[in-house]
Design a protein around this nucleic acid. Structure first.
Lengths: 256, 256
DNA sequence: CGTCTTTTTGACCATTTTCAATCAGTGTGG
DNA sequence: CCACACTGATTGAAAATGGTCAAAAAGACG
């Protein structure tokens, strides 16, 4: 999960890998598509983008002509207050859709930044209505993804609004660990969350100092370890206990 | 907006008002539907429910066979932590869709409670896929509504995570005031937000005591007034200034 | 190695919570 | 119309959580 950070800009309009061969298709997490669906999606895809860590993928108040699916790497959605306070809204992992809000309502209401090097599948916003007309099943999937995002936000809001600092931190880390694991393939090694404590702070709505002290406590109890600029989850169950996590039955998900 | 509270249970399967004559249709806020769309929606609708304030409309971890559109009254979505801490996620006003998450993913992940007496339009969850197959335009609208909910949650998360108590309170009140006003008809009088300070506290992630002191400050500055069990917004612009609100161009919205 | 970023710490301050009452507004029954 | 019961709004004081400031330590990177 923690790829080495490529340098400079990699804008390579890399070879257009056909969707049938998409790496993500193989993961059991994703639902199977029919050949017809795959053909349409292949045509829907206009490009494949590679961006280095720190790149701005989408920017608040901008109109974006595109929709993206993340193929590889991590990113995060965030909003800023005028004086610079930043709130991270959610993290974006492979299979997630980006830019739907902007596509439906014009202007983006949040920004998205790459956390690691990122591979994106680019879709033409214009053809979204065509997708709705011709492939109800895919339209349904898009709604499903939107509902899933909403569910994550609900949970996150509960966390920031009502959990204590240590509960929040524990919750966030298992949440991310879980998401990362659900995308794991055979070769994926140890799962490291590619985030800094500043990211954690901005996600939890805490100051960086207090975040550090909180994470320190989790580390002292042997639940996590800070590795370079990533977090290593050592005791998932321990974190769950602290955060009062309640298991959500997971089911196969679509992605386009 | 603050209806008198009907007593007992009003389960009246009230006369099935045809969707063409729906009160909400008239509001300019909503996009116009084609006759075909209206016919379909009329068939999609299986019932109309009236519930008294305090009713539980949907409950976390339950499966609901229905989707609802609020025709009149206010409700709120919330989640609970095991020890009872409550976080209100968002408010639900006329035209809003309820239960989509449950429809798409089985179990509800949050509960919904009526704030005032409420009138609901009931749809059959089963026929949702039919809607997607036959009416791409309506499918699109559902996605639009989901994206809109996500946008509200993003904003709310920014608030709870990064705004101070007084900024949050100001933000919430203008937000609600704005939503209420956008549904206003000619006859609607003064807009009163039908919420208690406990609701405000649970929305902002603050204690009831601190919420009270914060609202008190807003009242002392002449921005709001607490009226019975409702809030009267006296100085919208003043609240906007405090909350660092940035105008979001509003556009016509769909509802089903 | 030297620089730059990120993590850690300590001391002190501010906001927010908790606890404990009191007050006010509404609704009820007599 | 009034006393009583409730729920929701207010207050004050003490305690706790989390924030700010400043600086040092530890890695990461070239």
């Amino acid at each position: 999960m923690t790829q080495a950070a490529p340098l400079g800009k990699i804008e390579s309009n890399a070879r257009h890998m056909p969707c049938h061969a998409c790496v993500l298709r193989g993961l059991e997490k994703f639902r199977d598509f029919t050949p017809r669906e795959l053909d349409f999606i292949s045509g829907f895809k206009v490009n494949e983008l590679h961006l280095p860590p720190g790149s701005t993928i989408l920017e608040e108040q901008r109109h974006s002509a595109h929709l993206y699916t993340i193929l590889g790497g991590w990113a995060f959605r965030y909003k800023l207050l005028e004086d610079g306070r930043r709130q991270i809204l959610n993290f974006v992992l492979p299979g997630d859709l980006l830019g739907l809000q902007g596509s439906l309502m014009g202007e983006m209401q949040h920004s998205v930044e790459a956390l690691t090097a990122v591979r994106l599948c680019v879709f033409e916003r214009e053809r979204l209505s065509e997708l709705y007309r011709q492939f109800p099943s895919l339209a349904f999937d898009i709604t499903w993804l939107a509902a899933r995002e909403e569910r994550m936000l609900d949970e996150h809001l509960l966390s920031v609004g009502r959990r204590s600092a240590i509960e929040r931190a524990a919750y966030l880390l298992v949440f991310l660990f879980d998401r990362a694991r659900s995308l794991q393939t055979a070769e994926t090694g140890r799962i490291l969350l590619p985030i800094s404590q500043q990211h954690v702070a901005d996600t939890l709505g805490l100051s960086i100092v207090h975040t550090n002290k909180t994470l320190r406590k989790l580390a002292e109890r042997g639940l996590i370890r800070w590795q370079g600029r990533a977090c290593d989850v050592l005791d998932e169950q321990g974190l769950r206990t602290i955060s009062a996590w309640h298991d959500t039955a997971s089911m196969n998900r679509p992605f386009i």
